[in-house]
């Protein structure tokens, strides 16, 4: 039987430090994906992902069972990303760093795909933070509007409004680039 997130949290709190590793393995891809898409920076995303899980571990006793662990985790992840973006805003670092390109990326189709991804990444980064996070949570994390509203502590209608406005702006930005879509 697979342990639920809440059960793993309880086991960790009971002293099984290794149990927390199960949570990390279970959520690292989604958390890293969220961080990378929010930050648009490979190293920042990697460091922020570590910071997110450390924050979760240190605050595990504050987790209340009345909410889903995933919602709590996403809330912490977004806070950490927000803090990292504010720190970055004070520094002069390249914001459009691409992730490592695979060795077999020499094929034309692969290059073309990478170019499309890069355009999407830039367009997302250009969006206001509030719209960007809703698009990422909806499009890439597959959360429902209700879950997004709970995580951001906003009405469901507001979540939908932000998504529509964000997609609308994203459309304008990507349509301005030829063959982006």
């Amino acid at each position: 039987m697979e342990w639920t997130d809440e059960q793993i949290v309880q086991r960790t709190l009971n002293g099984e430090v290794d149990a927390f590793g199960i949570l990390v393995r279970r959520w690292e891809k989604k958390v890293y994906g969220l961080a990378y898409r929010m930050l648009g920076h490979y190293e920042d995303a990697r460091d922020t992902t570590q910071e997110i899980f450390l924050t979760v571990y240190r605050n595990l006793r504050k987790f209340r069972g009345d909410a889903k662990f995933s919602s709590w985790l996403y809330r912490i992840a977004l806070n950490c990303c927000h803090n990292r973006l504010r720190e970055r805003a004070l520094q002069t670092v390249p914001l459009d760093e691409s992730p490592p390109v695979p060795v077999d990326a020499s094929a034309h189709s692969q290059v073309e795909r990478q170019q499309k991804i890069e355009r999407v990444r830039r367009a997302l980064r250009a969006l206001p933070y509030e719209m960007r996070q809703v698009i990422i949570m909806k499009e890439y994390e597959g959360l429902t509007f209700k879950e997004i509203a709970d995580i951001l502590n906003i009405p469901v209608s507001t979540a939908k409004t932000r998504l529509y406005t964000g997609l609308d702006q994203l459309r304008e930005r990507l349509l301005a680039v030829k063959d982006a879509l």
Binding site: R37, K116, V120, I135, Y140, L174, A180
Partner: peptide, 10 residues
Amino acid sequence: LREALAAWNI
């Protein structure tokens, strides 16, 4: 647009 976004697969 969703198709384009889906291309950004990590």
